[in-house]
Measured scan of single mutants.
Amino acid sequence: IQIFEKGDFSGQMYETTEDCPSIMEQFHMREIHSCKVLEGVWIFYELPNYRGRQYLLDKKEYRKPIDWGAASPAVQSFRRI
């Protein structure tokens, strides 16, 4: 998965294949504004440590949070399923 600090795949980008319990600790990001799921299925969580509201992401590109069903870019953790 590739995660971006700004919408439309702009700003700082990080790519990982590992679960992330805290985007702040692992990537020094506060929010995720866009992402590209390159393979597999992932779950975004609103809070750290896989808690809070969940969003299921299939293999595709998400230009903004509304594309994965979120009203805001408040994603604090994610993991692959």
Rank of each mutant, 00 (worst) to 15 (best):
G11V: 03
R51Q: 07
Y62W: 15
K36Q: 10
L47D: 05
Y45N: 04
Y14S: 14
T16M: 13
I23L: 04
L57N: 01
S72F: 06
F44R: 00
Y62G: 05
D58Y: 06
A70V: 09
P65I: 04
K64S: 02
I23R: 02
D58P: 02
E39T: 09
A74L: 15
V41Q: 13
R51N: 02
C35L: 14
H33V: 09
L47C: 08
K60I: 03
P48M: 03
F78K: 01
D19N: 03
F4W: 06
E18I: 14
Y14I: 09
R80Y: 00
F9Y: 09
Y50R: 01
K60G: 11
P48Y: 03
E46H: 06
E31P: 06
W42A: 03
T17D: 06
T16H: 09
R79V: 01
S10T: 03
I1T: 03
K60E: 06
L38E: 09
M29E: 14
T17M: 06
K6H: 08
W42K: 01
E46G: 05
Y55S: 01
R80K: 15
V41D: 09
I66T: 06
M13N: 05
F27H: 14
D8P: 09
F27L: 11
M29Y: 11
G69W: 08
W42P: 00
V75R: 01
Q76W: 01
Q26F: 07
L47E: 09
P21K: 08
T16N: 11
S34V: 00
P48G: 04
D67P: 04
P48N: 05
R80S: 08
Q12M: 10
W68Y: 02
Q54S: 11
A71M: 11
S34I: 00
R53N: 03
S22V: 11
E31F: 12
V41E: 06
M24E: 06
E39N: 14
P65L: 06
I3Y: 02
H33E: 13
A74Q: 12
R30A: 13
D67S: 12
K60A: 10
F44N: 00
I3W: 07
E31C: 04
M24K: 15
K36D: 08
G52T: 00
R53V: 08
I1R: 00
F27A: 12
S72V: 15
S22D: 14
F4M: 07
Q54L: 04
G52P: 00
M29R: 12
P48S: 05
Q12S: 11
Q12V: 10
K64W: 03
D19T: 06
M13W: 06
T17L: 11
R63A: 05
G52K: 01
L56V: 04
R79T: 11
Q12Y: 12
D67F: 07
C35Y: 03
S77Y: 02
R30C: 10
F4N: 03
R51Y: 03
I32M: 10
S34L: 00
Y55H: 15
S34A: 09
E15T: 06
V37D: 03
S10R: 08
E15R: 06
S22R: 08
F9D: 02
G52V: 00
G7Y: 08
E5F: 13
S22H: 09
K6N: 04
C20R: 03
V41N: 12
W68S: 10
F27V: 11
F44I: 03
H28L: 12
Y62A: 05
H33G: 11
D67I: 15
I23W: 11
V37S: 14
I23H: 03
G52R: 01
Q26I: 06
Y50D: 00
G69C: 03
I1F: 10
L56S: 07
Y45F: 07
G52N: 00
S22L: 08
A70M: 08
I32N: 03
F9W: 08
C35Q: 01
Q76G: 06
D19M: 05
K64T: 03
G69Q: 03
E15W: 06
K36I: 07
W68E: 06
Y50I: 00
M13L: 10
W42F: 06
Y45L: 01
K59Y: 05
Y45M: 01
I43A: 12
G11A: 12
I43N: 10
Q26S: 07
Y14L: 12
K59W: 05
L56W: 13
G52Q: 00
D8M: 14
G7M: 10
E25W: 02
E5N: 06
E39P: 03
Q2P: 00
F78V: 07
I3G: 01
R53F: 06
S10D: 04
F27K: 08
Y62P: 15
F9M: 13
F44L: 10
